Amino acid sequence: MIKSMTGFGRGMAEDEKRSFLVEMRGVNHRYLDFSIRMPKSLMSLEDRVRKEISKVISRGKLDVFITYRNYAKEDLAVQTNLHLAKGYVDALNSIKDSFSLKDDISVSLVSRFPDVIFTEEKEENIEEIWSLLEEAVREASLKMLEMKKVEGTSLKNDMLQKKEGIIALVDRIRERDKLVIPLYKERLEKRIEELLEKVPVDESRLALEVAMFTDKASIDEELTRLSSHMEQLENFLAEEEPVGRKLDFLAQEMNREANTMASKSVDIEITNLVLSIKNEIEKIREQMQNIE
């Protein structure tokens, strides 16, 4: 199944204590690259998040956003900083003694100073948290996968259509190529006759020149290999496993054959047809860049 590297997925999971919202988006990339934003308190679970996503997605640049809400009041504990409180009391006593002030230091007064009394989250059960987070990550991954499949199908159909166009161009080049050698021989013979006027043309020499030209200008191998690449393209697009890297290599080979034909061509019509093939190959290559 062809899958695009572009997609978006969202997953939610919650219980009576907490909730998770996981959102991820993907774009094309040579490898699988993660960027995960999650609460610092849950950083120990980052590797598990990566592994869970990797079960579904194998290539692309992924931005993952994890939002965590904790509703459990029992997870908060009230703490006191007695060392800091003592400092405040000592400072108040110093002020009192320095200015002969009335001693009205009270608990309510000291407790109002910053950080003397504060709340702190209790250490949570990490496995309990992961059970919920895993559910949200899996849902987001699967939803993203579905979008990637839909877009992948569109990419596949577009490339297959362009493949058929290239095959049609190859057939036209084959037909035109059959005429190139006879036309070259005719032009060469006429040119020699013009130069030598009434002197008979040396048929053996003419045959040798035509044979050398035929060998130099032959594009049969390139046409055969390019046709084979079109078959490979269709086969790759029918595979179930990710084929993005295979397609990258295949696009390079397709371009190589087209470039060789263009360099060998001595016929303007064939040259124009090869340029049309190169244009279609480039369009296919651009689509390949988005395939996982």
Rank of each mutant, 00 (worst) to 15 (best):
S218A: 13
G152V: 04
E127S: 14
L21P: 14
S100D: 14
F249A: 00
E186M: 13
K96N: 02
E123M: 07
S227E: 15
I53G: 03
V64K: 03
I173K: 06
E151P: 03
K190Y: 03
R285D: 00
F20Y: 12
V49G: 06
F65E: 02
D267E: 10
E120T: 07
R191Y: 10
R18E: 15
L183V: 12
R112V: 05
E221S: 09
M230F: 00
I167Y: 06
N157Q: 14
K61F: 12
R225Y: 05
T119K: 11
L109F: 11
D267Y: 05
I270M: 04
R25N: 14
Q161T: 15
G9Q: 02
F249M: 01
S204A: 15
D267W: 06
F213H: 04
M1P: 11
R37I: 08
E257F: 08
L226F: 03
V56G: 00
N272H: 13
S41W: 03
V199T: 13
R205D: 07
N255R: 00
R245A: 01
M230V: 00
L133R: 06
T80Q: 13
L133A: 06
E139P: 05
D248W: 02
N255E: 02
E286T: 06
L132T: 12
Y88C: 04
E46A: 04
V199S: 09
E282K: 01
G9L: 03
L196A: 15
P200Q: 12
V266N: 14
I181A: 10
I284V: 12
V116K: 06
M144I: 02
K51A: 12
F8Y: 14
S94D: 13
M12E: 15
N125W: 08
M147D: 02
L101P: 05
G244Y: 03
M38K: 02
K40H: 14
A136R: 08
E127Q: 13
G9N: 04
D220C: 04
E128L: 09
V201N: 08
E292W: 02
E16M: 07
L21V: 15
K163F: 01
A140S: 09
D97R: 08
N235C: 02
T260M: 11
F113D: 06
Y184W: 07
K185R: 15
V137L: 07
G87A: 06
K162T: 08
E241G: 00
S228C: 04
E120F: 01
L169Q: 08
K73I: 11
H229G: 01
Q232E: 06
L273K: 08
I291L: 06
R138V: 15
W130E: 10
D248P: 00
S141C: 02
E127T: 12
S131H: 05
V49N: 09
I270D: 04
F236C: 03
R174V: 12
L226K: 01
K143M: 12
T6W: 11
G9E: 03
